[in-house]
Design a binder for these strands. Structure first.
Lengths: 329, 329
DNA sequence: TCAGTCGACGGGAACGATAACATCAGCCCC
DNA sequence: GGGGCTGATGTTATCGTTCCCGTCGACTGA
């Protein structure tokens, strides 16, 4: 910056101002600075700017996996809405593990983000402390935690699966199964299973047809294997709800391989409204949790919280939408 | 850090050393520092460390879209292999546009990454200049550029599609079509189309059955629409290669809706070995570009380049593997 | 004409760590 | 016993910006 200043014949302070568009610099000077910088190959150094101004321009985001269209959509929504505010996403993945999440959160906080968005509402005690001490807006997403850390933009995974159960029951199904992961690692998956059980009991139906398909997140392949197990052990099942569209599609593919008619012999529903759910034959009944909307709203909350630091914790509840398609008749 | 130092009764320098595991500090002191920091809720500030040490611990990565399982896998491979080296990924998306890429690269370079990984080998002139001036290792991936900027970890998209053409021709197909995006925006998609044309000509076959399915990246839905168009305009087509497995699955689903037998009436091949290709019925013939491997190797190159600054540009060619499945007989 | 205002720009200190060098006690070994 | 070495710690200056305050000339309006 010194060098650029010398080249233009101004002070470093003026160069600094020229690079930020807000400060009072004449257009002529600004243009001269830009050109000199471009010619010299100078690239502004945010690390120094960050230290002095105490503004990093980062928003930290944790998601379970980058290889998941739903979370990717949330990140995209966030990113799009944060960009005009001059904020950039610093992304990390937890691999569906709250221990990893704790470590990741610490890593991210060292970078001094201006806000942090986490997926889910279940964290280790130390992670909670870290987030509380960070003195920045915290947004929990994809869940409606009972004991929120700060702001919340999410929905009830249990209630969303309840909608699917209601839909199947309305179509006359009574022997309904649930395919999900087997551990408590994926808390959203667990919530969906619990939501299934609660809804079945509410209808006075048997809620014990639970197929555990391995360590979450369960893939198409695991969904297929789980369906094979279901067809063999509980062949009179009329409908099955899968923890995600991916496993639901795997289940559907297994039926196709075995010549089991869907929905004729067994109805299948998924979760997430992945693109595949609308494309495959028969198209899958699913629930749209509006992942992009979650990201967009989280960005709005961040903007509001940064604008007025005393803002009380916001709670934006998203209403997932049931999408009834051919796979459930 | 001052406060922690006071609490423990040492100098800030000792605290600094205690936080980095390499320096010579007694175990007792280190432990005392950790505990004091934990108790006081102190979180290490990388921004300051970064400025003085000129080490950010960032590796910048640009990908076209976060919502793509192939690129996500590359990022995962990178991330896993960089973590043990104490490097963290700073991710940005270009939305398949080299103008966006230019802007993104500038944004990322301001953060002073220690290396940068870009997807593809086509960039604006200014982006090339920025990368060359940055004086850090540059790794181009998912391509084998003729005029590389630095290191390369990739494969020839054209040759990969050539393998698929060879496979179909070996199975007796002569009237083969290609479904892809319509613009030059997605350079890898364009390379695949050109590779298709070249391979067809090499076999002395008609290479004009090209279906343009809209602005890249083309989705399942667009693949389905393109297949509808293909079946209507060129009904004697024996096989079709799609620019990705997603569009290939869309094409397959359209055949299923129309009762067109796959592979009996028309064979379908995709690209990318997405999970869906191995799950759907019939399973899709595809090409595995080993995206995770690309990420892993890129991380290796980064490690080598950071260890020995004079390292000549590396060129790691990945050999994509054809996976023949039921969809091509 | 002159006080007041405003826009454009400069000087010096500071953000919170760490590189580089200095110090110092304890130990080893001839 | 003293020189040399090693491990643990302290001191000073510094990374490249920006905050804070100040200066200076031009313009305005009575």
């Amino acid at each position: 910056m010194q060098d650029v200043a010398r080249a233009v014949g101004v002070s470093p302070m003026t160069v600094s101002r020229a690079f930020r568009n807000d400060a009072s610099v004449s257009d002529k000077t600004r243009e001269a600075v830009r050109q000199a910088a471009e010619a010299m190959g100078y690239v502004f150094d945010s690390t120094a700017s960050t230290l002095r101004s105490q503004r990093t321009g980062f928003v930290a985001v944790t998601i379970p996996s980058i290889n998941n269209a739903n979370f990717a959509e949330t990140v995209r929504g966030l990113s799009e809405a944060l960009k005009p505010q001059g904020l950039q996403i610093l992304l990390g993945t937890t691999d569906y593990d709250i221990q990893n999440e704790e470590e990741l959160i610490e890593q991210l906080l060292r970078r001094r983000p201006e806000a942090i968005v986490v997926t889910g509402g279940k964290h280790t005690e130390r992670a909670r402390r870290l987030l509380e001490n960070a003195a920045i807006p915290v947004i929990e997403t994809w869940d409606l935690p009972e004991r929120p850390l700060g702001h919340v933009v999410g929905f009830s995974n249990a209630a969303a699966v309840g909608m699917t159960v209601d839909h199947l029951v309305a179509h006359g199904a009574t022997r309904i199964a649930f395919i999900g992961g087997d551990a408590d690692r994926d808390t959203r998956g667990t919530d969906r299973r619990l939501g299934f059980i609660a809804a079945m009991q509410r209808h006075g139906l048997d809620a014990t047809r639970l197929i555990a398909a391995g360590a979450p997140p369960i893939s198409m392949r695991e969904g297929a294997r789980a369906m094979a197990r279901l067809l063999e052990t509980l062949p009179d099942t009329q409908a099955v709800i899968c923890v995600s569209d991916l496993s639901a599609f795997g289940a559907l593919s297994e039926c196709q391989r075995r010549g089991v008619a869907v929905p004729g012999q067994i109805a299948i529903a998924g979760f997430g409204d992945y693109e595949i759910a609308g494309t495959c034959v028969p198209a899958l009944t699913t629930v749209n949790p509006f992942p992009h909307e979650i990201g967009r709203k989280a960005a709005e909350v961040i903007a509001a919280a940064l604008a007025s630091p005393g803002l009380p914790p916001q709670r934006a509840a998203i209403s997932p939408g049931l999408i009834a398609r051919d796979s459930t008749g």
